[in-house]
Nucleic acid binder design. Structure first.
Lengths: 206, 206
DNA sequence: GTCTATAGAAGGATAGAC
DNA sequence: GTCTATCCTTCTATAGAC
């Protein structure tokens, strides 16, 4: 593959990424992707046979990149509270730069649930739970974190960080009526969510 | 307006609601709406001039119905904990019946933020904050709930209840690997979220 | 590998008969 | 009010020249 080929393919891929995230699969137009890439429609089909295949390529890469960012959560040198904070920080930083991305993924995954399975298929997940249990076994016992409550806690943490960006237009509209500023709210989000979550977990102790 | 007219218009509206929620504005097809309503495309345009206007009608009604369901949260006979539980219960019951609805709304609102403002425009919102402050002034003081932390708490509560349904395909795929069942998880969600949230709030006391 | 031109299908919208 | 037939635009995809 020559340098020029790679350049073109990459330009197409980047343009497609932008347009798909902005408009979704159904709303995206091959013409717009071609325009943004500075080439014509025919060339899109030369590199990627169809809109569907182009979308799949974009979606797979994006989803895998998102997953990769959170491996450091399993860093053993962090306390449980630090892990929680680290996760919130990573998510928030990421979504401040790509605010439309979470909704895009939720959307397309909902329309085609098979996509998630394809992405997760090649991930080493079997040990993640064990790693957490080994690193924080005593805390898990003290706070009654088990195979029943851990899913509740983890989805709550994901929810707390992702939802504000997914529901941004609604939150902004409501905040406007009460004189609250969305950006200031986000600036405080990591601190608040970390304390809120960790306090909730700690108070499970009896 | 005759009974038959109303019947047809309603059949169209209901079919459109189903299709729009399932496919979104971009993915929906007038032909499919006509088929499901048992009429032809021309009649769609007779009642609603365009796809856009049909969509607007559907979206406005749905959004207003959703908002209406939560007025009882401001019932003065409930304690703060009961209010939180009531909200989680309402949301969860609602989304168990219409699981695709929250993502639909988030999606379309994100693509056209003006829609939220149109829906909120006719709502009496100015007093909601005052009502809450009057009913729970002492708890607000004790737990340091103010105009800065209340938005954090309320978005957290919304997140905890809505996110599991919005991210259902992802959560299900991950749960599957760990042998967790989504429906059982949801059955426990109201209890867990209520305790989690209320504990987090209480632990703000110093 | 990249372009122009166009095929072919689908979708929204309308005209006109009943 | 409801239908059939059709217009017109838009979109994906391909053929063929360079």
């Amino acid at each position: 593959m020559t340098e020029l080929e790679k350049q073109t393919e990459e330009k197409i891929f980047e343009a497609a990424t932008d347009v798909f995230i902005e408009k979704g699969m159904d709303g995206a137009r091959m013409q717009e992707i071609a325009d943004r890439a500075g080439i014509n429609k025919a060339l899109l089909h030369y590199y990627y046979r169809s809109k569907e295949k182009l979308f799949d390529a974009v979606f797979t890469i994006i989803a895998k990149q998102m997953l990769k960012r959170f491996a450091p959560v399993f860093d053993e040198n962090l306390t449980l509270e630090e892990k929680i904070r680290f996760y919130y920080q990573q998510q928030t930083d990421f979504m401040k730069r790509s605010p439309r991305l979470p909704l895009f993924i939720l959307n397309e995954v909902s329309r085609n649930p098979q996509r998630v399975k394809n992405v997760l298929k090649h991930m080493d997940h079997t040990n993640l739970l064990k790693i957490l249990e080994e690193q924080h076994g005593d805390e898990f016992a003290r706070y009654k974190i088990n195979r029943e409550t851990l899913p509740q806690i983890m989805t709550s943490i994901a929810a707390m960080s992702i939802f504000p960006f997914v529901a941004k237009p609604i939150i902004e509209a409501i905040f406007e009526k009460f004189g609250t500023n969305f950006n200031e709210y986000i600036e405080r989000r990591v601190d608040f969510a970390t304390a809120f979550t960790y306090n909730a977990i700690k108070s499970r102790e009896k």
